[in-house]
Simulated assay, not measured.
Amino acid sequence: MSFEATASMWGSLLASCRVHKNVEVAEVAARKFFKIEPNNAGNLVLLSNVYAASGRWDDVASARKLLNSSEVKKEKGKNWIEIKDSVNSFMVGERSHPWMGEIYARLDDLLEEMEKSGFRGQVEHDLHDVEDYCKRELLKYHSEKLAFTFGLMCLSWFVPIRIMKNLRICGDCHQFMKVASAVTGREIVVRDNNRFHHFREGVCSCGEFW
């Protein structure tokens, strides 16, 4: 290019490497990204995702160790949904919400219904070197799934379910929202830190790239 690439350009390239499992280009993009934004933990997380998608678990562990030992700290994922002028927040494995028991039960029922439609979860998006059934359990109660389920319980059927997220939505939750929009017939909007995702009838507005 006739000009220097920006952090967002390197970040987009790095995210694309996860889709195409291109580790070599991902490492180049990550080095450039980290040089421009040394305090952004997202580049190490994205690089870990690339390693995990390629089954390179030793490299995943090295990236996570570097993240933990550096001053750069990964922000915890959090979601918000507004119900009747009240903002409700959720984190993965949330237990403090007063409706938590009902939310978990409804989500379990929904996942069982979705599995009948072929949804099995995308375990490659979990960064732990464990068996697939363990990964499914770890992915099961991600915060956007909890927020969506609460919206499903509380909002009228014709009202879109709108969720705000402080990080980029993971691939498994993205697939979950697509299938959930088809199974429940609900319109879902997720605003993550990168873009709006508008889910309707099993399709997302992002065209599978985010």
Rank of each mutant, 00 (worst) to 15 (best):
M91C: 08
R64G: 00
G55M: 02
I81W: 07
K32L: 15
N39V: 15
G101E: 09
K73Y: 15
K32I: 07
M91W: 14
V45I: 09
A61G: 10
A63F: 05
L46E: 11
R56Q: 15
K76Q: 13
K35W: 13
G42M: 07
A61T: 09
Y104N: 01
N88R: 12
N88V: 06
M91A: 15
E71G: 07
I81Q: 00
P98K: 14
G93W: 07
G93T: 10
K73S: 06
I103L: 06
P38R: 09
E102R: 12
E75A: 09
S89H: 12
K78P: 12
I103R: 00
V87G: 05
A41R: 04
A30E: 03
H97A: 05
K35V: 08
I36K: 02
K32F: 11
S89W: 13
V87P: 07
S96F: 12
V72G: 01
Y51T: 00
E75K: 11
I81N: 00
K78T: 06
S54D: 11
W99I: 15
V72R: 02
K84R: 10
V92A: 08
R95W: 12
K74D: 14
A63W: 10
N88I: 10
N43A: 09
R31A: 11
S62D: 12
F90K: 00
L67D: 00
A61P: 05
E37K: 10
M91R: 09
L66E: 09
N88E: 14
M91K: 11
P38D: 15
G55T: 01
V45S: 02
A52L: 06
I81D: 02
K74W: 07
L67Q: 02
G101N: 05
N43Y: 06
E82I: 08
A53N: 03
D58R: 00
N88K: 08
E37V: 06
S86W: 08
Y104P: 02
I103A: 01
V87H: 09
L46H: 06
R64S: 02
G42C: 05
N79Q: 12
A52V: 02
V72I: 03
V60K: 00
R95D: 12
A30K: 01
A30G: 05
F33G: 02
R64Y: 00
N39P: 04
N39T: 13
I83K: 01
N88A: 15
N68I: 12
M100L: 07
S69P: 08
A63I: 05
K74M: 14
K74A: 11
R95T: 13
E94A: 01
E71Y: 14
S70K: 01
F34D: 15
P98R: 07
L47S: 01
E71P: 10
L47V: 01
R95S: 10
N43M: 07
E75M: 10
D85L: 05
W80L: 04
V92C: 13
R56V: 03
A53D: 04
S86M: 10
W80V: 04
W99P: 13
